[in-house]
């Protein structure tokens, strides 16, 4: 476990070495009435290559803002984000994004939805990745179905394929299973781990479910309410691949308990424990 205090970085070290690094980043929003709201101030975080990093924290603590900053959609007001030592100044096309809603285009078939990033990037799917990815997520045979013919879970699988089609270096997921029912959610968690096991990449994952965080993550970053800070970072020391049984180990409960305590201590128990 790392405290906040040892997350400070000297100027000379900026961005060097790490895969993704957020350095002293602040984001200030202008409100309608001319005031200013700080999403986060002097935020520091480093993400290692191929790790599964999960962010948990109260609603509106700037997690989505942080994700937008990491993919280069939103410049920080102060500070910087580095990807492999290079400052992120424009959208990173080698990242993939998944949101709470599947946001599929309703006039496109499953396959054509998955192909959207390839089209935008002006590439062709010469390796037939679309077909292989759809098979990987269990959508084989649904290629020409329309989104409205799919269940919520299947739509989200399609959205995951869309995020992976251009073989991104980093997969950014903003509460991807938040709109699904509890059973589908568990299943999607299993699926995601399976996909990740076969298609290893860096994942930055936001969730409100502590159990989901512990089950999926290599490290869980617990955030405080606005302006967001890192309350603590918990290393989850379960081996990979993760199995269903791990959820019933005493150690699992201890992780969940300690994360809940951190959140309750700092945020007054805003989070649901699932």
């Amino acid at each position: 476990m790392h405290g906040e205090s040892n997350k400070k970085w000297g100027k000379g070290l900026q961005g060097a070495g790490e895969f993704i690094r957020v350095v002293n980043a602040s984001k200030v929003y202008q409100t309608q009435d001319g005031g200013e709201v700080e999403a986060f101030t002097n935020f520091n975080l480093e993400i290692e290559e191929d790790e599964f990093l999960v962010l948990v924290g109260p609603s509106g603590c700037g997690k989505s803002t942080l994700l937008k900053m990491i993919v280069g959609l939103l410049p920080p007001t102060r500070g910087a984000v580095y990807f492999q030592g290079t400052e992120v100044l424009s959208p990173r096309t080698d990242f993939g994004m998944v949101f709470q809603e599947a946001t599929l285009l309703p006039w496109r078939s499953v396959r054509d939805n998955v192909m959207l990033p390839i089209e935008i990037l002006g590439k062709t799917d010469k390796d037939y990745r679309a077909g292989r990815l759809l098979t990987l997520v269990g959508l084989h045979g649904f290629e020409s179905r329309m989104p409205y013919e799919l269940s919520g879970g299947m739509q989200q699988r399609c959205a995951i394929c869309r995020a992976l089609i251009h073989d991104p270096r980093v997969l950014v997921m903003d509460e991807p299973f938040g709109a699904l029912d509890a059973m589908t959610r568990e299943e999607m968690g299993r699926e995601l781990l399976r996909i990740w096991q076969q298609n290893r990449k860096t994942v930055v994952f936001v969730t409100h479910s502590i159990r989901e965080a512990v089950w999926l993550a290599d490290r869980v970053v617990v955030m405080t309410p606005r302006p967001a800070k890192i309350a603590d970072i918990i290393e989850i020391e379960f081996e990979r691949p993760r199995t269903e049984k791990m959820q019933f180990l005493p150690k699992f409960g201890e992780y969940v308990q300690s994360i809940s305590d951190i959140i309750a201590g700092r945020a007054g128990g805003v989070l649901c424990k699932d």
Binding site: L73, E101, T103, L105, W107, E119, I120
Partner: peptide, 29 residues
Amino acid sequence: PSPQIIDLARQLAASQLQIYAKIRFPSAL
């Protein structure tokens, strides 16, 4: 169109023309 799908397109460095042709116009139909 949802802000998320527009974000997704922008993150892939889509041009305004692409955003209109592939997302906004069909959504507007």
